[in-house]
Simulated scan of single mutants.
Amino acid sequence: MMRRLRVFKALLTAVPFFVAYAAAAAPVQRVIALAPNLTELAYAAGLGPQMVAASDYADYPPGAEKLERVASWQGINLERIVALKPDLVLAWRGGNPQRSLDQLQSLGVPVITLDPQSVEQVAAALDQLAGYSAQPETGHRAAQQLRTERAALQRQYARATPLPVLLQFGTRPLFTASGKTLQSEILTLCGAQNLFAQSPVPWPQVSREQVLMRRPAAIVTPGDQAAQRAVAAWWQPQLSVPVIALNSDWFSRAGPRIMLAARQLCPQLAALPAPSSSARNDR
């Protein structure tokens, strides 16, 4: 494996457009994204025509599912990425193995790492990627639309007393999200309060007892109606509150469609009555 990589490195040194980092943004011709949300960001930034490969589960927008797969939960295919001669690779900081990314950079492949954790960071990523598109206005327009919609939702759905809500991801184990996540920000935009916003870790594992002590007025979970029913049944008979299931791709991926999840969530939370007493935050 290492011998083949050394051969690739020797070949790449003769190709002038391969640089370790893109020092200044300029339109590119061949782009690879190593996570589904990065594929969505690339397309939204106007880089769709330049996409040559992506990761497993990159299925949006239409056409992305036809891209060659060079990454999965098991890792990334270094040799194939190098063979495709990208002049920009979009990597997921914390999701793609750093050693593999370092190897790509050592071979002269330009890599940008992204891991947006807020709506503003998603917008900033779009602005950044717009610089690599032949039509940068596409990405800048998408970024501005995100910022405008975030402000509008904040105004429309603000509550004097935020609704205490549990963000639930899975049951075995039961884990949630802290206030340092994009998903928690969406709750806030919709006038809710994340029960575990003060958790020191981004994705804490919690117990039933910890949740019950905080008396949630609702539960928000990614998934379909089957997931909604499963979560509701899992809490019976101890807790009987509305369970709101959101489109998994919209809510779980840190990309432009996060605002679709917000538009799906906000009206449902707004229809719920104000809590009789505030839930307690995790301290």
Rank of each mutant, 00 (worst) to 15 (best):
V206S: 07
P16Q: 13
A123P: 04
L47Q: 01
I244K: 00
T188R: 13
Y132C: 00
S133C: 06
Y57K: 02
V111Q: 05
L153A: 10
P36Q: 04
A261L: 07
Q264R: 04
R69L: 09
A124Q: 15
G94F: 00
P136F: 06
A58M: 00
S252A: 09
A123N: 10
A45V: 02
Y21S: 13
V31E: 04
S252M: 07
W73E: 13
Q228F: 13
Q50F: 10
A217S: 15
P216I: 05
R263Q: 15
L187E: 14
P256K: 01
N37P: 09
R4P: 07
A261C: 07
M2P: 07
A53H: 09
S184A: 11
M51S: 05
Q205N: 12
R147G: 12
G48Q: 15
P27S: 11
A142P: 01
I32G: 01
A53P: 05
A64N: 06
Q168D: 10
G179V: 04
A143I: 10
R30Y: 05
L41H: 03
T181L: 04
E68F: 12
A44Y: 04
G191V: 09
E185Y: 11
T221G: 14
A20C: 10
L153T: 09
R93H: 14
L11C: 07
T188C: 07
K9C: 06
L126R: 02
P267T: 04
Q193N: 13
T188I: 09
A226D: 15
S240H: 13
L5R: 07
A271D: 01
N281E: 11
V165R: 06
Q264S: 15
E137Q: 14
M213A: 14
N281R: 10
G46W: 03
R172P: 02
P164N: 09
A123Q: 07
S72F: 03
L5A: 10
M213G: 09
P216L: 06
A25I: 03
A270P: 03
I258G: 04
Q144T: 12
L104F: 08
S248A: 13
P222Y: 02
Q29S: 15
L189G: 06
V82E: 10
D115H: 15
L5G: 02
N281T: 09
E120A: 14
L34A: 08
P110Q: 07
V82R: 00
W73S: 12
Q193Y: 04
V111Y: 05
D115R: 08
P202F: 02
P200Y: 13
E40R: 04
R141M: 14
R257V: 07
L90I: 11
S199K: 10
L41M: 12
A226C: 00
L129C: 00
D224M: 01
G131I: 01
P273V: 01
E40Y: 05
F175S: 08
A23S: 14
R155P: 00
V15W: 08
D56W: 10
I76T: 13
